[in-house]
Amino acid sequence: MNLFRFLGDLSHLLAIILLLLKIWKSRSCAGISGKSQVLFAVVFTARYLDLFTNYISLYNTCMKVVYIACSFTTVWMIYSKFKATYDGNHDTFRVEFLVVPTAILAFLVNHDFTPLEILWTFSIYLESVAILPQLFMISKTGEAETITTHYLFFLGLYRALYLANWIRRYQTENFYDQIAVVSGVVQTIFYCDFFYLYVTKVLKGKKLSLP
């Protein structure tokens, strides 16, 4: 494992924990898209079914379990524990427009036509677009709390660091996974506009608000 991959995983973990703590401490999930969080829970579940079939390393197993546990806890907080604070009126992205095409694509373009591999592929495709309901919600309300923008920054940074990891792996191991790389590029592109706003506004101490 190279440094980029490790930093990417840490960034991902930080994002997930940041969101969890934000909701728990403020006892509110205002401004958070429950739909994006459900999609991420689906992504982790579909991808990490290999916990039951393949053992990679203790590190991989622990991270997978933590990601799944945190993700389901977040969904539970939004739709049950702090349901009253959930901003459902602004969370109106039609998720079927993401789930159906990515599911079809996973059946058509995959490494191997087996159930686990199709689910893995589906999770990769779905992850690349799963943040859209959240970004849509922000564009609709025109603003985001600063802590929410930190969450989005680290979540976006994670896949960008994975891009560096894949370049490194190609150089050193001649390894590349076309499905992951193309989806990772698409995923990172979705964050570019946000990265720009984050650097030009949030890092300068201003609140993220859209004109």
Binding site: R5, D9, H12, R47, D50, T53, N54, I56, S57, N60, M63, K64, Y67, H111, D112, T114, L116, E117, W120, Y162, N165, E173, F175, D177, A180
Partner: peptide, 10 residues
């Protein structure tokens, strides 16, 4: 280099 259906990343 990985076996079929094996993914070593998260």
């Amino acid at each position: 280099p990985l076996a079929d259906g094996e993914h070593d990343e998260l």
